[in-house]
Structures are given as C-alpha cells and as structure tokens.
Amino acid sequence: MKVTGLVPARFLTMVAHIVILIFILWSRDSNVKQCLPSTYTQSQYSEKDLQLIIGLSVGLGLFLFELIGFFGGITMFAPFQSLLSISAHCGACVALAYFVWHGWPCERYWYIFGICSAFPALTEIVTIIMVVCCGRAI
C-alpha cells in the first residue's frame, strides 16, 4: 500500500464537506436573503429557498457515489481520483465556510457545486466504470 495517508485524508475532507453542507441546509436564511432585492415577496423568497435546497440536496446526493466507491474499495486505492477528491472537497470546505460567514449570495453556491461536488463525482463514476470494465484505475 504505497498511498498511505490518502485514504484517511480523503475520508476526512469528504466528511468535512458533508458536515458543512448539512450545516448550510440547516441555516440558509441569510444566504437566501442576500440574493433577493431589498424588497421581496414571500413567493420570491420561497422560490430562491427551494433552489438552494435542491442544490444542497443534489450536492449531498452526489456524495452517495463517492461513498459507495470509497467504502466499496473500488476507488479507495486509486491515487489520482483520491488526490482529485481531496483537493476538490478541501476547496469546497474553505469556500463554503466563506459562504456561511460572509453570507454570500446563493447564486455563488452553484459555482462551488459545479467545481467541488459535481466534478469529483463525475470522475468518480468514470473511475468506477474504468475499474469495473478495464480492471484498473489510473
């Protein structure tokens, strides 16, 4: 096992990302208000709120693929995927911490979602397919 340290590091960054996503799902009020005009109606608020809930839930759902790949041992020892996942989730943690503290407008979540949730999940699926079909990962 040459890649000692990658396995716990990957798991811990993923857990940190999951924790902060659940945290935002719990207290998203100020972020929703940031992306509304100064006077807004209840329907506008609930529309933006629903969008953010869907984004966060899809972000949590994409973790299912990564956790299956990780705990199933399919990509646990794939060094490239591990490093990619560590860096993406680490970046997501820092960005989402700013998202919470500075009350970023909720549109900016989608950039974080695209780069730090969807991208590693996509490469995870590609790696799983490669391992299942070709027998080895890059």
Partner: peptide, 15 residues
C-alpha cells in the same frame, strides 16, 4: 468491512 469501519472511525474520532 468491520475492519475498514474501525480504521475510518479512528480517524473520524480524531477529527
């Protein structure tokens, strides 16, 4: 699976 869980839980508890 039990061993993997224990290993991961050790790291998680440190966090």
């Amino acid at each position: 699976p039990y061993q993997i869980l224990l290993y991961i839980n050790g790291w998680y508890f440190a966090l």
